[in-house]
Computed example of a mutant assay.
Amino acid sequence: MRRLYRKKALSLVKELDAFPKVPESYVETTATGGTVSLIAFTAMALLAFFEFFVYRDTWMKYEYEVDKDFSSKLRINIDITVAMKCQHVGADILDLAETMITSNGIQYEPVIFELTPQQKLWHRTLLLIQNRLREEHSLQEVLYKSVLKGAPTALPPRPIHHPRGHAHIAAFVSHDTYNFSHRIDHLSFGEEIPGIINPLDGTEKITSNHNEMFQYFITVVPTKLHTSKVSADTHQFSVTERERVINHAAGSHGVSGIFMKYDTSSLMVTVSEQHMPLWQFLVRLCGIIGGIFSTTGMIHGFVGFCFDIVCCRFKLGPYKPREVNPHVNNCAAPLLTDNHVQE
């Protein structure tokens, strides 16, 4: 009984077979079918190869939400070179009420404003990257994933409590000796992350006028960065630049110097690195193989069908009628006459 039950179950399973096998004696291979098969297998291999690189690649996902953190301190990282002597320059940070927040702890290092050939090469490279960033925003994703060494900061980072204010660099000497030509080697907010190039990095302003005001209006956006190499809380920012000559006689009033006015945004951006899951890669791979196999089979069948119709219509190929050779003797049996029948 058990054997009989097993045979019935096995026969039932065989009836459910959706992939019945055809005996090899019933299968006919053709040159066109082999050519289409080679093309299909080549396309499958190429697309599967490229799909593997897509699977290994990552992309950045941006999410926006309201910033609910009101107690953290804003950290400023700045490295700026001014074409004046250190003892003639002073820097401070003020809030909106023009109250000085801090001016202690800022280090002044005497350097040469002119760059060496190697520094000029690095500066040109940095400006080229900045131009690419302005033209194509997606390049920022590459910078998020890369690991580059940042320049050392001459002015150390200072944490401050106020979310808004401005940094001011002024001179302590006569107006005739002012020279606020400057180069911003690095300016960032929050935790420093190697590989991130900020909008003002590499900015250079050269002026021949003694009384000139340079203003940078900055909007700081809190950013959480999560990648395979780094996870940090930092800040992005956008900037608007303005510069004008101070001439009280012409009605252009103000104070000569370098001003950086910043304000924090109420939105927070979360940047996370995304990767294609393995199951999605396998599904896409099966879709590529099955799609190419089915498509090439349908195309091959349709082309063969059209070819048969054309050949049948114009009597070509296998449908061409055979010609009868008149020189060939037809062998026919002789007819019997009545005499032969009577005999």
Score class of each variant (00 low, 15 high):
residue 171 A to V: 08
residue 289 I to Y: 07
residue 245 V to A: 08
residue 47 L to Q: 15
residue 33 G to F: 02
residue 207 T to H: 04
residue 302 F to R: 04
residue 92 D to A: 11
residue 80 I to V: 14
residue 299 I to A: 06
residue 73 K to I: 06
residue 139 L to I: 15
residue 239 V to M: 06
residue 16 L to I: 06
residue 209 N to A: 10
residue 96 L to K: 12
residue 226 H to R: 10
residue 321 P to G: 08
residue 318 P to M: 12
residue 101 I to K: 00
residue 157 P to M: 11
residue 294 S to V: 07
residue 116 T to L: 02
residue 40 A to L: 00
residue 40 A to T: 00
residue 322 R to P: 09
residue 13 V to Y: 10
residue 108 Y to I: 05
residue 75 R to M: 06
residue 23 P to Y: 10
residue 38 L to R: 13
residue 94 L to Y: 14
residue 111 V to W: 02
residue 162 H to E: 04
residue 302 F to M: 01
residue 114 E to I: 07
residue 139 L to H: 11
residue 196 I to S: 04
residue 212 E to P: 00
residue 149 K to T: 15
residue 132 R to P: 03
residue 124 R to F: 09
residue 325 N to E: 15
residue 77 N to T: 02
residue 185 D to G: 12
residue 125 T to I: 07
residue 67 D to S: 09
residue 151 A to K: 14
residue 297 G to F: 04
residue 305 F to E: 06
residue 136 E to A: 10
residue 140 Q to G: 07
residue 321 P to S: 07
residue 10 L to D: 08
residue 179 N to A: 07
residue 53 F to K: 14
residue 338 D to Y: 07
residue 149 K to H: 11
residue 160 I to H: 02
residue 325 N to W: 08
residue 247 N to A: 13
residue 59 W to F: 15
residue 72 S to L: 12
residue 305 F to S: 13
residue 309 I to S: 01
residue 259 F to W: 11
residue 240 T to V: 06
residue 105 G to C: 04
residue 335 L to I: 06
residue 282 L to S: 08
residue 93 I to V: 15
residue 27 V to C: 04
residue 29 T to P: 00
residue 154 A to Y: 13
residue 291 G to S: 08
residue 199 P to D: 03
residue 268 M to Y: 03
residue 303 V to Q: 07
residue 189 F to Y: 10
residue 174 S to A: 14
residue 81 T to S: 11
residue 307 F to C: 05
residue 85 K to N: 13
residue 47 L to G: 13
residue 274 Q to A: 15
residue 60 M to K: 08
residue 102 T to F: 01
residue 324 V to H: 14
residue 132 R to N: 13
residue 340 H to Q: 14
residue 274 Q to Y: 07
residue 313 R to E: 10
residue 26 Y to T: 09
residue 44 M to T: 00
residue 106 I to N: 12
residue 153 T to F: 05
residue 51 E to M: 08
residue 195 G to V: 12
residue 158 R to W: 03
residue 265 S to I: 03
residue 338 D to M: 10
residue 246 I to W: 09
residue 219 T to K: 08
residue 281 F to Q: 12
residue 139 L to D: 10
residue 332 A to S: 14
residue 203 T to A: 12
residue 26 Y to A: 15
residue 324 V to F: 15
residue 79 D to T: 12
residue 312 C to T: 10
residue 86 C to R: 09
residue 208 S to C: 08
residue 257 G to E: 05
residue 285 L to D: 05
residue 284 R to P: 04
residue 88 H to F: 12
residue 34 G to H: 05
residue 35 T to A: 14
residue 248 H to N: 12
residue 244 R to P: 03
residue 279 W to F: 08
residue 223 T to G: 01
residue 23 P to I: 04
residue 50 F to Y: 14
residue 238 S to T: 15
residue 174 S to E: 15
residue 84 M to F: 11
residue 288 I to L: 03
residue 158 R to S: 01
residue 339 N to Y: 13
residue 191 E to G: 07
residue 172 F to Q: 10
residue 330 N to M: 13
residue 102 T to E: 04
residue 159 P to H: 07
